[in-house]
Amino acid sequence: MTALTTAPVAHTAAAAAPRAAVTVPLAQAIASLPHGVESREGYTRTAFKHWVDADRDACNTRAEVLLAEAVEPPTVGARCALTGGVWWPMYDEVRVTAASGLDVDHAVPLAEDRDSGASGWTATRRQAYANDLDAERSLRIFSVVSRG
């Protein structure tokens, strides 16, 4: 049996006294998580402007992720054209030797973000989220072959 142990946490001085740790089966713990109302109505991927060049170095977000995830860095040419390089996408576990053989996507799909509250965000906030290079695992590389 897989179990999840929760530890007591006091959030503020005025918080209720911490409770003792509880061990419950994983399925029970998951079932007890609160569920929010989600709506995919009105979702369009284009509402999340992505692959911008935020730092104006000629490399857009996609290229920045490819550069960061290369196990052997590519050569960066004019207008951030990437040649050479080697990548090992963690989900695909295949050796990729050309940037064109890779796709960059969000670990949490943008549609899910919208369902979970991004529908109320401004266009500026959606763009910042879609191009977030500060959260190391928010954007991931995948081999084009694995994506079909």
Rank of each mutant, 00 (worst) to 15 (best):
A14S: 09
L66F: 11
M1P: 05
T83A: 11
A81F: 02
L102T: 02
E93L: 11
H35M: 13
E64C: 02
A111E: 15
F142Y: 13
E136A: 15
F142Q: 06
G117W: 07
P109E: 14
Y91T: 08
L133F: 07
V94G: 00
A99Q: 02
T124D: 11
D105S: 14
P89D: 03
T2R: 06
G42F: 12
R137P: 01
A118L: 09
H35E: 14
A10H: 03
V94I: 07
H11Q: 09
S116D: 12
R40N: 15
A98Y: 00
A10N: 10
D92W: 03
W51F: 10
L102V: 04
L82Q: 01
V104T: 08
V24D: 08
H50Q: 15
P73R: 09
A3I: 12
R137A: 15
V65P: 00
G42Y: 08
P73D: 06
Y129H: 14
R62W: 03
Q127K: 11
A135R: 15
V86H: 05
A130H: 11
P74G: 06
E64L: 03
N60Y: 06
T83Q: 05
A70S: 13
K49P: 13
W87Q: 08
D57M: 03
S138I: 09
V94E: 06
T122M: 03
V24T: 13
W121D: 07
Q127T: 15
E69M: 07
L4K: 11
A15R: 03
H50C: 09
R125H: 02
R79C: 01
A118K: 01
E41D: 12
A107K: 12
R137M: 14
V104Q: 06
T83Y: 06
D53Q: 07
V108R: 13
T83W: 04
A58C: 09
G36Y: 02
V24Q: 13
A68M: 13
D53N: 09
E112F: 02
V144D: 05
M90C: 01
G85K: 03
E38R: 13
A123I: 02
A118N: 01
P8V: 07
L102D: 02
R114M: 15
A99M: 03
N131C: 12
V37K: 10
D132Q: 12
P73Y: 05
S116G: 13
D105N: 08
G85Y: 02
A27F: 08
A21W: 07
